Simulated assay, not measured.
Amino acid sequence: MTFELRTYTSAPGRMEDLLQRFRDHTVALLERHGMLSLGYWVPVADTDTLVYLLRHQGTPAENWAQFSADPEWVKAKTESVRHGELVTRIESVFLEAVDFSPLQP
Results as ranks from 00 to 15, higher is better:
F94H: 15
D99M: 03
L50Y: 05
F67N: 00
N63S: 12
E62T: 15
A65G: 07
R55E: 13
F94M: 13
R89A: 14
W73V: 08
G58V: 14
V74S: 04
S80F: 06
E96K: 12
F94R: 14
G58L: 10
V87A: 07
V81F: 03
E79W: 01
D99K: 05
S92H: 09
V74M: 05
D99H: 10
V51L: 15
Q66P: 06
E72I: 11
W73F: 15
V51A: 13
D99E: 11
P71V: 05
S80R: 00
T59D: 14
L50Q: 00
F67I: 00
T49R: 14
T59Q: 13
E91Y: 10
A69L: 02
Y52G: 04
V81A: 03
F67D: 00
R82N: 08
T88C: 00
T88H: 00
Q57N: 14
E72S: 09
A61I: 08
R82F: 09
R55C: 07
A76C: 07
A61C: 06
S80Y: 04
P71L: 06
L86P: 06
R89K: 15
L53Q: 03
V98Q: 06
H56E: 07
E96W: 11
G58K: 09
V93N: 02
G84T: 09
G58H: 12
V87C: 08
F67M: 00
